[in-house]
Amino acid sequence: MQTECPSPSLKRSVLTTSRTLIGRTLKNARYRKRFAVQPDYLPYYETYLLMLWQGREDSFQVEFPPVGQENFEVKVDRIGQIRFEAWLRRKQRAALLQLSSKLKFRRTPLAGVNVITSLADGSIRDFLEILGSIFEHYARRQKLDPRSSTSLDKFATARTPIAFDIQTDGIYEASEAYVSGVSSRSEREADVLLRFIQGLGTLTSILQSNPNDPRVLGRSERGIFAVTFEGKEEHSSEAANDAVVKSLIRLAEISGYVRAIDVGGGNLDLAGSGPQVITFRLHKRFSPYYHFSFRGAYETVQFHARDFWPLCDRATPVDPTTWANALASRNLSLSFSQLSLPLSTATSDD
């Protein structure tokens, strides 16, 4: 589907970037491999980032500069510096998420073994369920019986790649089924657990794609939640609320819906009366449904346990979307740098 470019300034700058890159393909074998001289391969994400970049490492604005004030040629001339290109690549997914949010897209293409493996998040069960969903869409497209082993053999031994849209449809359906699985749980806490997942999913999406937040590009792929428990007096109402929040996080972890993250001591098995920190993120399989990066999250955001209590409160439950929007609008602090994909990468793409 063809989509109109969101800004004439962006379109003009894309063409400028494209000419620069194409010119370099004629001189450098590395560029010849990466940038095809075809209109279908215009460097949109590089241009989008450079248009909003203010010249300092992680400083971005949310609106394109006025025509004639882009200083674009100076920025694009840095393409070719290995460290600068590594920095651009780290922002690629964030640029796609934010640009799709600007364009009101709730779906971005997802396909390939690397994407599926990432979404499975280390679980062979999730990996097979995602593949099973893709297979069902493949069988439907090919008019095959999905219950037949012959159809499965044809799917597994196909000599040509499975169509991109078939993979995307299967991946999104598998993510939706994962969310539906939360609501179909039979235990008493199922409704609270679903509200908790919905709130975290919406919050992660806002942190990673909000077109009005310059931190989306400056600190891309936020969504590792570091939750501090202050160690209240044992019989206080605050301590009781904190205990409920902690038990819900633990239930979500046991159920496989969140992943504990070790960033220097945070975990889900803490004891003692002093301040404690639990650090976790959502399972990556939620990402297509909630519209955040299929790679999950790399950047930590700080919260207090009381921030999560409204999602756990049975007496006056909060709407998870309202909760997420209110929390995202706060000036969230960041205490950890990205956990991987270092800026100082000095290797080439060859």
Rank of each mutant, 00 (worst) to 15 (best):
M1C: 01
T3V: 08
E4Y: 12
T17Q: 12
T17R: 08
T17S: 14
S18W: 11
L21A: 01
K27F: 07
A29P: 06
A29Y: 08
R32I: 07
R34K: 12
F35N: 12
Q38R: 15
D40F: 15
D40L: 12
P43Q: 07
Y44L: 15
Y45N: 12
Y45V: 10
L50F: 07
W53R: 00
R56S: 13
P65K: 08
G68Y: 09
Q69H: 13
N71T: 04
N71W: 14
F72P: 00
V74F: 06
I82W: 14
R83M: 09
R83C: 02
E85R: 11
K91I: 04
K91P: 01
L96E: 15
K102V: 10
K102D: 12
R106Y: 05
R107Q: 11
G112F: 05
N114P: 00
I116P: 00
S118E: 15
S118G: 07
D121C: 06
D126G: 04
D126E: 13
S133Y: 01
Y138F: 15
Q142Y: 09
S149M: 05
S149K: 05
T150C: 02
T150K: 05
T157I: 02
R159W: 07
P161K: 11
I162H: 02
D165N: 08
I166F: 04
I171K: 01
I171W: 02
Y172F: 10
E173A: 13
E173V: 03
A174R: 03
A174H: 07
V182D: 05
S183H: 13
E187T: 06
A190V: 06
D191R: 13
L200W: 05
L203F: 11
Q208G: 04
N210F: 04
N210R: 04
P214A: 13
P214T: 14
L217T: 02
V227G: 01
T228R: 15
E230N: 10
K232M: 10
E233D: 13
E233S: 08
H235C: 06
A239T: 06
A243D: 14
A243S: 10
V245T: 09
K246D: 10
I249W: 01
L251H: 09
V258K: 00
I261W: 01
V263E: 11
G264Q: 04
G265R: 11
N267T: 07
N267D: 15
L268F: 07
L270Y: 08
Q276H: 06
V277N: 07
F280H: 03
L282P: 01
H283E: 10
H283K: 06
K284Y: 04
F286Q: 00
P288W: 07
Y290S: 01
F292K: 01
A297V: 00
Y298C: 01
V301N: 01
R306F: 11
D307H: 10
L311Q: 08
T316L: 08
A324F: 05
A324M: 06
N325E: 14
N325V: 03
S329Y: 04
R330D: 06
S333T: 12
L334G: 11
F336R: 14
L339Y: 02
S340Y: 04
A346M: 12
